[in-house]
Simulated assay, not measured.
Amino acid sequence: MADTDTSALAPGQSVAWDNGERMGRSRAGHLVFLRRRLAEHGFAVAVDAPPGTGQPDGVLTTTWGHANEVFDRLMRVG
């Protein structure tokens, strides 16, 4: 993954790297990450929302399409 400085990301903005991994800031201002899993086949999508916000803290999936759908959905949460 390239530069991981998140301070310049505005709510709703995301960046993607050449390897397909993505990072963004949701409409609510929470960081959202899509990364390839290293220990097992698949992808992990995680959000840094504090407990009690009703958001899942992460989703594991084996398909690229599902990982991108989850990332996009978590980015829209406001």
Results as ranks from 00 to 15, higher is better:
2 A>N: 10
2 A>C: 01
2 A>M: 08
2 A>I: 04
3 D>Q: 10
3 D>G: 07
5 D>R: 12
7 S>N: 12
8 A>M: 14
9 L>Y: 09
11 P>M: 08
12 G>R: 15
12 G>N: 15
13 Q>A: 11
14 S>H: 15
14 S>A: 14
16 A>V: 08
16 A>N: 14
17 W>L: 09
17 W>D: 15
17 W>V: 07
18 D>C: 02
19 N>P: 03
19 N>R: 12
19 N>D: 15
20 G>C: 02
21 E>G: 01
21 E>H: 00
22 R>Q: 14
22 R>N: 05
22 R>T: 02
24 G>F: 05
25 R>N: 05
28 A>L: 04
29 G>Q: 06
30 H>T: 04
30 H>E: 13
32 V>K: 02
32 V>S: 02
34 L>V: 09
34 L>N: 02
34 L>K: 09
37 R>Y: 00
37 R>C: 04
38 L>C: 05
39 A>M: 12
39 A>G: 09
39 A>K: 13
39 A>W: 14
41 H>P: 07
43 F>E: 07
48 D>E: 09
48 D>S: 07
49 A>R: 05
50 P>V: 12
52 G>A: 03
53 T>P: 03
54 G>N: 06
54 G>C: 06
56 P>N: 01
58 G>M: 01
58 G>P: 02
62 T>E: 14
62 T>H: 11
63 T>L: 06
63 T>I: 00
65 G>F: 05
67 A>C: 09
69 E>P: 00
69 E>H: 10
71 F>Q: 05
72 D>E: 11
72 D>Y: 06
72 D>Q: 14
72 D>M: 09
72 D>W: 02
73 R>N: 12
73 R>M: 09
74 L>I: 13
74 L>D: 02
76 R>L: 09
77 V>N: 08
78 G>K: 13
